[in-house]
């Protein structure tokens, strides 16, 4: 069973693949961009995660290309992966909203 909150690398990989298929190096660069340079994923972590996500059916191979004599495999988000990412976004959004509301209440009430 795959449940609960997503780990950050998983969330970022799914996000990187949300709007287009990407190859491994592309995903690494995109994750740096998405996280404003805060998260730098490395190949070992990326491919261990892709292995898990493929098994879970959230990510699938889209196509393969050979560039400069090297294999480049593109990964895409599956419908199940997109649904899981959407659920995670809703979960985080609900928590963020609750946190914002309470912080606003704290400021309005002048609680020290």
């Amino acid at each position: 069973m795959t449940d609960g909150t997503l780990r950050e690398p998983t969330f970022l990989i799914l996000t990187a693949l949300a709007d287009r298929a990407q190859h491994g190096y592309g995903i690494l660069l995109d994750i740096e961009k998405i996280s404003d340079g805060r998260v730098t994923l490395r190949a070992g972590t990326l491919y261990a995660a892709l292995d898990r996500l493929s098994t879970a059916g959230w990510v699938a191979v889209d196509r393969e290309e050979v560039v400069d004599g090297r294999l480049r495999r593109y990964y895409r988000l599956t419908d199940a992966g997109a649904a899981r990412l959407a659920a995670e976004v809703n979960r985080v959004r609900a928590h963020t909203r609750a946190a914002e509301t309470r912080l606003r209440g704290r400021l309005a009430g002048g609680t020290a």
């Binding site: 190096y25 690494l28 990326l46 292995d51 480049r72 495999r73």
Partner: peptide
């Protein structure tokens, strides 16, 4: 994935 990882 070996060749692909090597490329990355």
């Amino acid at each position: 994935n070996g060749e692909e990882m090597l490329g990355v």
